[in-house]
Design a protein around this nucleic acid. Sequence first.
DNA 1: GTCTATATTCAGATAGAC
DNA 2: GTCTATCTGAATATAGAC
Lengths: 207, 207
Amino acid sequence: MRTVNPEQHARKRARILAAAAEEFAANGVDGTSTARICRRAGIGSGTLFHYFPTKKAIFHALFADDLARTAEIRDRALAMPDPEEGFALLFDRLTADLDDPQAPGLIAAALIQASRDVKFAGLLGDDEARTLAALTTLLERLATKGRTPPFPPPRAARWLVTVIDAAYLAATDDGYDPAAHAAELRHVAAWLTATPLPPPSRGGGHR
Amino acid sequence: MRTVNPEQHARKRARILAAAAEEFAANGVDGTSTARICRRAGIGSGTLFHYFPTKKAIFHALFADDLARTAEIRDRALAMPDPEEGFALLFDRLTADLDDPQAPGLIAAALIQASRDVKFAGLLGDDEARTLAALTTLLERLATKGRTPPFPPPRAARWLVTVIDAAYLAATDDGYDPAAHAAELRHVAAWLTATPLPPPSRGGGHR
DNA sequence: GTCTATATTCAGATAGAC
DNA sequence: GTCTATCTGAATATAGAC
């Protein structure tokens, strides 16, 4: 009998997700029809529902894949003996997609989805809570080394996340220069955390 | 013959817009049916389309009303002899809706709409460009008084707007305290602009 | 009320692994 | 040769703008 080829399956799944991301980023969840995703992915509608049970599930998968990788890096950062290194690692991850032109649209779509889809809200909320906790811990460790940010660690962590989110949104502006923007963001983050950030580790984004 | 009562007309129009704002903020444009707006506004669908030609037009009106008032205040701020006072006035306006729970949803809806609706994108883009220009001018005037922000005025203005946008989005967090948040935002803004901001002028928001 | 758009289903066709 | 993964496109039923 025929068996499932995991590699092939994963490839096609990724292709569908890429097509869906483009559509969702441009038109939101409700503004995207499954037919458009199919057309862009070059498949029939039956195939789409062979890989994902519902349109909502496609959107969930798009984020779940990403959040899983973030969780990994978060743990790695917390396990590092040097908090400065850990902080830099996590910061790099959180800003890795700054040059992804789809980011603003996907964030907007996610915001709306979260207000209507409890499960999805939990997915995002959980991740955010863990990220805030990790950043707080790292900032507390840095504080014992004499680094005192303008706000107490939990609030500094909150503002850091806020500013990073803001940086993603600003990618909609015209005349947007990812490199210059990233450099400025490092400057703002350094002030917020009283921690100089080393130049970004080359190696590129991850999507 | 029966004539229109302008006051009554405006009242009902405002009521429809309020209902629409609530729905759009929670479900986005595509996720909101005109039927839901009608139900919430307590009117029939015929009435809705008597006041607005299309669903899109309702969304436009929601923002156009607000942007017109912002434009007014922007001009007033630029005309002030003391740039510090002008800056404070404009800043207060830009942050006036921070305690509006609908703000995050409406911003998300606007982001998606802007990517699909050229006219709407123009509406927002125009306003943003004017606001950036006004802030830049004010920061330049402040610079001549010895206030030197961490970035040159156009970039400092850009970051200020970006951070304010982000502050609106952060209003989705639980445990969100508008007052504390606003105070911290003032601190961040003061650093970004090298300008101490006086305590917010009481008088409340405007929506 | 009308008329269009669209998520999801289904009955079937093809083809690779055993 | 059989069994199942994979894929298709028409059919359905429902919702929603106007």
